[in-house]
Amino acid sequence: MGEGDGRDWREQRQRAVRAHAAADERRRAAERAEAADLVAGFVAEAIRRGLRPTPLVAGSYSGGGRYRTGLTGWYVDRAATRAVDVEGRFYLLTVPGGLRARLFGATPRPHPAPLIVGEGGRDGDSVPLRELLSRRLDAGDDWP
């Protein structure tokens, strides 16, 4: 095997790695778009059904406190750790917490909604986003 053969192999391998990464990014982008559509549909349906949005609060990472957020929307899980605001943004409602958050409130950042909520978590409790949002709609205003 000559020096040129090794270089050709490395170049082919690098092209394959780049192609794989590009395909993976296209798949993730398609999943993000699908999840965003589900969340937007949820907001439209919640408004159509007359579900009242509520002020959302966030919990600390340590579980030691609850903090105002300035957000209004709907919790989508019973633990009130995931929510959708009235603008159709998905939130994980956990924040660092602390004195500043207690005094002035917390500012959670929106996250891209996952198609499978809880996927990869330690407890193995994952649920498709479509099902989670459907459960929330079916519960109406009888939700924590």
Rank of each mutant, 00 (worst) to 15 (best):
G88P: 13
T69Y: 09
T72H: 14
P110D: 10
P128E: 15
A44C: 01
A30I: 03
P55C: 01
A101L: 02
Y67R: 09
R13M: 12
W143K: 00
Q12I: 02
R122G: 12
P96L: 08
R122Q: 10
H111I: 05
P112Q: 13
G4I: 13
A29Y: 06
L56H: 14
G121M: 09
E3T: 14
V57S: 07
R26L: 15
L93S: 00
A101C: 03
L51G: 02
A35Y: 01
Y75K: 14
G140D: 03
T69N: 06
R136V: 10
V84G: 01
E34F: 05
V84P: 00
L71H: 13
F42Q: 08
A106P: 12
T69D: 09
I47E: 13
G121R: 12
D85M: 01
L93I: 02
E119C: 01
E25I: 09
G73C: 09
A46Y: 01
L99D: 11
D125P: 02
R136W: 12
Q14D: 15
W143S: 03
A19D: 10
T54N: 03
E31P: 09
D142I: 02
L38F: 05
P55M: 04
A22P: 06
D24N: 11
G73K: 13
F104V: 00
L132E: 11
A79F: 13
L137W: 06
I116G: 02
E87I: 05
E45V: 01
E34A: 14
V117M: 15
L115K: 14
L129T: 07
G64I: 04
A106V: 11
D123Y: 09
E11A: 15
